[in-house]
Simulated assay, not measured.
Amino acid sequence: MSTTDRRTLIVDAAIELIARRGIRALTHRALDTALELPPGSSSYYFRTKRALVEAIADRISSRSRGDFTAAGFAAPDAADLPAVAHGIAVWLDRLLLERRDHLIARHALIVDLIGDPELHARLANSLFSIDRARALFRANNFPDPDTTAADFIAVLEGAVFDRFAGNRSNLPAGTPASITQLTTLLSTYLRP
Protein backbone atom coordinates (compact mmCIF):
# COMPACT_ATOMS: atom_id res chain seq x y z
CA MET A 1 0.00 0.00 0.00
CA SER A 2 1.39 3.42 -0.95
CA THR A 3 2.00 6.15 1.63
CA THR A 4 -0.84 8.22 0.14
CA ASP A 5 -3.24 5.29 0.35
CA ARG A 6 -2.21 4.51 3.94
CA ARG A 7 -2.67 8.18 4.94
CA THR A 8 -6.14 8.25 3.32
CA LEU A 9 -7.08 5.00 5.06
CA ILE A 10 -6.03 6.46 8.43
CA VAL A 11 -7.89 9.74 7.86
CA ASP A 12 -11.06 7.92 6.79
CA ALA A 13 -10.84 5.71 9.87
CA ALA A 14 -10.38 8.84 12.02
CA ILE A 15 -13.52 10.39 10.53
CA GLU A 16 -15.47 7.21 11.24
CA LEU A 17 -14.07 7.05 14.79
CA ILE A 18 -15.18 10.63 15.52
CA ALA A 19 -18.61 10.01 14.00
CA ARG A 20 -19.19 6.83 15.98
CA ARG A 21 -17.47 7.53 19.31
CA GLY A 22 -16.88 11.29 19.50
CA ILE A 23 -13.89 13.58 19.25
CA ARG A 24 -12.39 12.40 22.54
CA ALA A 25 -12.04 8.90 21.15
CA LEU A 26 -9.64 10.14 18.48
CA THR A 27 -6.20 8.87 19.45
CA HIS A 28 -3.38 7.31 17.49
CA ARG A 29 -3.76 4.15 19.53
CA ALA A 30 -7.50 3.93 18.78
CA LEU A 31 -6.78 4.31 15.07
CA ASP A 32 -4.10 1.61 15.13
CA THR A 33 -6.53 -0.70 16.91
CA ALA A 34 -9.44 0.08 14.56
CA LEU A 35 -7.28 -0.54 11.51
CA GLU A 36 -5.48 -3.52 13.03
CA LEU A 37 -2.13 -1.82 12.49
CA PRO A 38 0.97 -2.29 14.60
CA PRO A 39 1.19 0.19 17.50
CA GLY A 40 2.64 3.52 16.39
CA SER A 41 1.60 3.13 12.74
CA SER A 42 -0.82 6.06 12.58
CA SER A 43 1.57 8.31 14.50
CA TYR A 44 4.25 7.50 11.91
CA TYR A 45 2.05 9.11 9.23
CA PHE A 46 0.60 11.85 11.46
CA ARG A 47 3.12 12.74 14.17
CA THR A 48 0.69 14.81 16.23
CA LYS A 49 -3.02 14.92 16.82
CA ARG A 50 -2.95 18.39 15.25
CA ALA A 51 -1.49 16.94 12.04
CA LEU A 52 -4.20 14.31 12.02
CA VAL A 53 -6.97 16.88 12.59
CA GLU A 54 -5.56 19.04 9.78
CA ALA A 55 -5.66 16.03 7.45
CA ILE A 56 -9.25 15.30 8.50
CA ALA A 57 -10.24 18.92 7.84
CA ASP A 58 -8.55 18.77 4.42
CA ARG A 59 -10.30 15.51 3.54
CA ILE A 60 -13.75 16.71 4.60
CA SER A 61 -13.33 20.12 2.93
CA SER A 62 -12.03 18.73 -0.36
CA ARG A 63 -14.77 16.08 -0.52
CA SER A 64 -17.39 18.76 0.24
CA ARG A 65 -16.08 21.03 -2.54
CA GLY A 66 -16.06 18.09 -4.92
CA ASP A 67 -19.60 17.06 -4.03
CA PHE A 68 -20.84 20.63 -4.39
CA THR A 69 -19.19 21.00 -7.80
CA ALA A 70 -20.48 17.61 -8.94
CA ALA A 71 -24.04 18.60 -7.98
CA GLY A 72 -23.96 21.03 -10.91
CA PHE A 73 -26.59 23.45 -9.70
CA ALA A 74 -28.12 25.53 -12.52
CA ALA A 75 -26.87 29.04 -13.21
CA PRO A 76 -28.54 31.52 -10.84
CA ASP A 77 -29.83 33.79 -13.61
CA ALA A 78 -32.21 31.05 -14.74
CA ALA A 79 -33.26 29.94 -11.26
CA ASP A 80 -36.61 28.28 -10.83
CA LEU A 81 -36.71 28.50 -7.02
CA PRO A 82 -38.87 25.40 -6.43
CA ALA A 83 -36.49 23.44 -8.67
CA VAL A 84 -33.50 24.92 -6.81
CA ALA A 85 -35.02 23.88 -3.47
CA HIS A 86 -35.56 20.36 -4.78
CA GLY A 87 -32.05 20.16 -6.27
CA ILE A 88 -30.43 21.25 -3.02
CA ALA A 89 -32.67 18.84 -1.08
CA VAL A 90 -31.58 15.93 -3.30
CA TRP A 91 -27.94 16.94 -2.84
CA LEU A 92 -28.29 17.22 0.96
CA ASP A 93 -30.11 13.90 1.11
CA ARG A 94 -27.29 12.25 -0.84
CA LEU A 95 -24.73 13.74 1.55
CA LEU A 96 -26.73 12.45 4.52
CA LEU A 97 -26.86 9.01 2.93
CA GLU A 98 -23.32 8.69 1.56
CA ARG A 99 -21.25 10.97 3.78
CA ARG A 100 -23.05 10.88 7.12
CA ASP A 101 -19.84 10.19 9.03
CA HIS A 102 -18.18 13.18 7.36
CA LEU A 103 -21.07 15.45 8.33
CA ILE A 104 -21.03 14.28 11.94
CA ALA A 105 -17.24 14.53 12.25
CA ARG A 106 -17.35 17.97 10.62
CA HIS A 107 -19.82 19.26 13.19
CA ALA A 108 -17.87 17.75 16.08
CA LEU A 109 -14.66 19.32 14.84
CA ILE A 110 -16.29 22.71 14.20
CA VAL A 111 -17.21 22.85 17.88
CA ASP A 112 -13.87 21.45 19.03
CA LEU A 113 -11.90 23.91 16.88
CA ILE A 114 -13.63 27.13 17.90
CA GLY A 115 -10.31 28.38 19.28
CA ASP A 116 -8.47 27.62 16.02
CA PRO A 117 -9.60 30.28 13.51
CA GLU A 118 -7.93 28.71 10.47
CA LEU A 119 -9.19 25.13 10.83
CA HIS A 120 -12.54 26.25 12.21
CA ALA A 121 -13.16 28.50 9.20
CA ARG A 122 -12.07 25.78 6.78
CA LEU A 123 -14.66 23.38 8.14
CA ALA A 124 -17.39 25.93 8.89
CA ASN A 125 -17.33 27.14 5.28
CA SER A 126 -17.24 23.73 3.64
CA LEU A 127 -20.88 22.68 3.32
CA PHE A 128 -22.34 25.08 0.75
CA SER A 129 -20.68 27.84 -1.29
CA ILE A 130 -21.46 31.28 0.17
CA ASP A 131 -20.64 32.79 -3.22
CA ARG A 132 -23.12 30.49 -4.95
CA ALA A 133 -25.78 31.34 -2.36
CA ARG A 134 -25.20 35.10 -2.81
CA ALA A 135 -25.46 34.74 -6.58
CA LEU A 136 -28.70 32.82 -6.23
CA PHE A 137 -30.30 35.48 -4.05
CA ARG A 138 -28.98 38.38 -6.17
CA ALA A 139 -30.29 36.79 -9.37
CA ASN A 140 -33.71 36.41 -7.79
CA ASN A 141 -33.82 39.97 -6.45
CA PHE A 142 -33.91 39.10 -2.78
CA PRO A 143 -33.39 42.11 -0.52
CA ASP A 144 -29.94 42.06 1.12
CA PRO A 145 -28.62 38.97 -0.71
CA ASP A 146 -25.46 38.81 1.44
CA THR A 147 -27.39 38.44 4.69
CA THR A 148 -29.97 36.19 3.06
CA ALA A 149 -27.20 33.91 1.74
CA ALA A 150 -25.63 33.62 5.20
CA ASP A 151 -29.04 32.89 6.71
CA PHE A 152 -29.74 30.27 4.05
CA ILE A 153 -26.50 28.47 4.83
CA ALA A 154 -27.46 28.56 8.52
CA VAL A 155 -30.75 26.87 7.55
CA LEU A 156 -28.82 24.20 5.59
CA GLU A 157 -26.49 23.62 8.55
CA GLY A 158 -29.45 23.30 10.90
CA ALA A 159 -31.26 20.94 8.55
CA VAL A 160 -28.22 18.67 8.29
CA PHE A 161 -27.67 18.68 12.06
CA ASP A 162 -31.37 17.98 12.66
CA ARG A 163 -31.20 14.96 10.38
CA PHE A 164 -28.25 13.24 12.04
CA ALA A 165 -28.62 14.38 15.66
CA GLY A 166 -31.90 16.24 16.13
CA ASN A 167 -35.62 15.61 16.07
CA ARG A 168 -35.55 14.18 12.56
CA SER A 169 -32.65 11.79 13.07
CA ASN A 170 -35.06 8.89 12.66
CA LEU A 171 -36.00 9.99 9.12
CA PRO A 172 -33.77 7.85 6.89
CA ALA A 173 -31.84 9.51 4.08
CA GLY A 174 -32.22 8.11 0.60
CA THR A 175 -35.99 7.99 0.77
CA PRO A 176 -38.70 10.07 -0.91
CA ALA A 177 -39.84 11.23 2.55
CA SER A 178 -36.34 12.55 3.26
CA ILE A 179 -36.18 14.53 0.03
CA THR A 180 -39.73 15.84 0.54
CA GLN A 181 -38.91 17.03 4.07
CA LEU A 182 -35.81 18.87 2.90
CA THR A 183 -37.53 20.32 -0.18
CA THR A 184 -40.42 21.61 1.92
CA LEU A 185 -38.05 23.27 4.38
CA LEU A 186 -35.93 24.89 1.67
CA SER A 187 -38.93 25.94 -0.44
CA THR A 188 -40.27 27.85 2.53
CA TYR A 189 -37.02 29.73 2.83
CA LEU A 190 -36.60 30.35 -0.90
CA ARG A 191 -39.80 32.34 -1.29
CA PRO A 192 -38.89 35.94 -2.29
Rank of each mutant, 00 (worst) to 15 (best):
Q181E: 14
D58T: 05
N125V: 00
S178I: 05
Q181W: 14
A34L: 07
A25V: 08
H86K: 06
A85Q: 00
D101Y: 11
T3H: 13
A150M: 03
A108H: 12
A135T: 03
T175Q: 12
L186I: 10
I23D: 07
F161K: 07
A57T: 14
D162Y: 03
P192Y: 09
G66F: 13
R100Q: 07
F46R: 02
D32M: 09
D12P: 04
F137V: 02
A34S: 12
H28E: 06
T147W: 00
A108C: 07
L35I: 14
S187I: 00
I23V: 11
L185N: 02
L9Y: 05
S41P: 03
I104S: 00
R94Y: 06
A51V: 01
L123G: 12
D131C: 03
Q181Y: 15
I60W: 02
S43I: 00
F46D: 01
D80K: 04
F142P: 05
P117F: 11
A70L: 04
S62V: 04
T27P: 02
S41D: 06
A159K: 06
V155F: 09
F164W: 12
A135F: 05
G66R: 11
A105Y: 04
A25G: 15
A79D: 05
G158F: 10
L103W: 13
F68E: 13
R6A: 06
P176T: 09
P117L: 09
L97V: 03
T27V: 01
L92V: 10
L92P: 06
L92A: 07
A71I: 01
L113S: 13
T183S: 08
F142T: 03
G158S: 10
Q181I: 00
V53H: 01
R29D: 15
V11H: 05
R65F: 06
I110Y: 04
R106C: 05
H86Q: 08
G166Y: 07
V84C: 01
V53C: 03
I60E: 02
I88R: 00
I10Y: 09
S62G: 00
P172H: 12
L136H: 09
T180H: 08
R100G: 00
G115E: 03
A135E: 15
R63H: 05
L156M: 12
D5Y: 14
A85I: 01
F137M: 11
D146R: 00
G72Q: 10
S2L: 08
D101T: 07
T147S: 06
S169F: 14
E118D: 14
R100A: 03
T148H: 08
R134A: 01
